[in-house]
Design a protein around this nucleic acid. Structure first.
Lengths: 266, 266
DNA sequence: CGTTCAGTTGACCATGATCAAGAGTGGTGG
DNA sequence: CCACCACTCTTGATCATGGTCAACTGAACG
């Protein structure tokens, strides 16, 4: 696998060969494997390393005393879990594995060394951190303003593009392992309502979801349905998809890349 | 006025006299005044400076194409508006004045100088940035999981403690200039429902809201009502209020500081 | 094969939205 | 100084989005 972190960071800033080999060394340190549903870090822990997702999906979440859970972000390969070990003394959220998860553990002093000696990497890390914060803002908008239908459409768009930026999509498809309960906890809905809403998205031919696999036959249409504007991801190579982003134009989709679905069960 | 930024940063990390005088110089640069309802920065702008709130309230928000608005954070004196000018090329949100607003404009190169020569300040700035991100997470939880009643109680708790940390509270009271429409846009509710919910908070003697002034006669009770746990603010001097935070204990409030309200109109 | 977990369906309910109108408050200008 | 205007707050009636509860189906895994 090409290094997902490198790919992710080059989304933001150019790196030299020296930077790249330094990054490769980072991820060659100790790696660990977490089983689905298990926590990688837990709220209240003292942070001791930064984790880089190598393979699989995770989610960052907080819980209320009565058990309500809110997922505040998903983490996919190339994502770093909170650069805050130099700063905050307690984790304010937990991180759980959704799939089988492989992460690289980057120790405090290793990261410190990188930051002092590799300014390009430092900038790129900052960038990732700011983008992650921007994604938080968009999630506030999502749960605060959008309807159930829009929220889920928006989430599908976001995760597809985030996976695409690290090369983890195949044409119109990508893995999508969160359960409907996970989606519910990420969007502030109930699992029952998520189920019905996804059925409506399916009925409108906006998504095909089957066995942890998401297919988006007509991305511009889905973006329109989710009031999705990719600016907040601050990607550089999104030209493929941003055609219809700035204006939510209604012109029947001239020249849009669209996957023809030949037959589909009712 | 004692420098709110200094006070805010010392919440996080100790500063030397040199640091403090450097911070004083920062805020002595150009200041500008924004009128209520006017934008300080607008989504899509290229960021060219960092703004430090000196006086008044602002809000950071995003809007959807059909006009729905979500406030994603409030900014009060001592808050820095997005340290991302070195990083992101476009603002992904707008910032508007709620009251008459005085801000210090800190130019790119001035800030760059501070960051290279004053490591303590740099750490403190990082800290503030991480805390701001943590607040974003809490807002996702707020709009995603809490009821209207809990959301508004939570918002009142948060803003009171944030103001307290920069010395802008008087006993049990603080200024609270956002309108009910602003509160609605911050909590993902409608103004009508915010109105009814605040009435219920009043009826339960949890808050007194009058003319832009908020009084919290019994903070632990309000925290309980809002499922509020101040850990996410990562403050250092919160011992006053954190007694009942870690466990939401139900023991009638022995020894809680409580303001006796002598009479109150029905 | 049985157990478990994710997905699905139905009936009913409630939180909060919508629409509309009126009351209080503050600011401005004639 | 007062009249008017704009804005925020308040109230009532009705509606709808999404929640709750409960049961059932189907796939995966040992």
């Amino acid at each position: 696998m090409p290094n997902a972190l490198t790919r992710r960071l080059e989304e933001y800033t150019p790196l030299t060969d020296a930077d790249r080999s330094q990054l490769a060394k980072l991820t060659a340190q100790s790696t660990l494997t977490i089983h689905p549903k298990h926590d990688l870090v837990r709220e209240g822990d003292a942070p001791k390393s930064v984790y880089l997702i190598l393979d699989g999906w995770a989610c960052c979440y907080r819980t209320l005393p009565d058990g309500r859970r809110q997922i505040v972000d998903f983490a996919v390969p190339g994502d770093l879990c909170d650069l805050n070990l130099f700063i905050l003394d307690r984790m304010d959220h937990s991180i759980a594995a959704i799939t089988r998860l492989r992460v690289a553990e980057i120790a405090r002093d290793v990261l410190h060394d990188v930051i002092t000696n590799h300014p390009n990497i430092t900038i790129a890390l900052w960038w990732q951190e700011m983008v992650s914060k921007s994604i938080h803002r968009e999630w506030i908008v999502n749960v605060g303003q959008r309807t159930a239908f829009e929220r889920i459409a928006h989430l599908f768009c976001e995760m597809f593009l985030r996976l695409e930026s690290v090369g983890l999509t195949n044409g119109f498809s990508c893995d999508f392992p969160p359960t409907q309960t996970d989606i519910a906890d990420a969007t502030g809905l109930t699992a029952v309502h998520v189920n019905r809403t996804i059925q409506e998205l399916r009925r409108q031919r906006l998504v095909i979801v089957d066995r942890q696999r998401l297919t988006i036959p007509d991305m511009p249409a889905l973006q329109e349905a989710g009031l999705f504007n990719s600016e907040y991801l601050h990607h550089r190579r999104l030209d493929r998809h941003t055609l219809s982003n700035k204006v939510f134009d209604m012109n029947g989709g001239l020249g849009r890349p669209t996957l023809q679905v030949v037959s589909q069960a009712s």
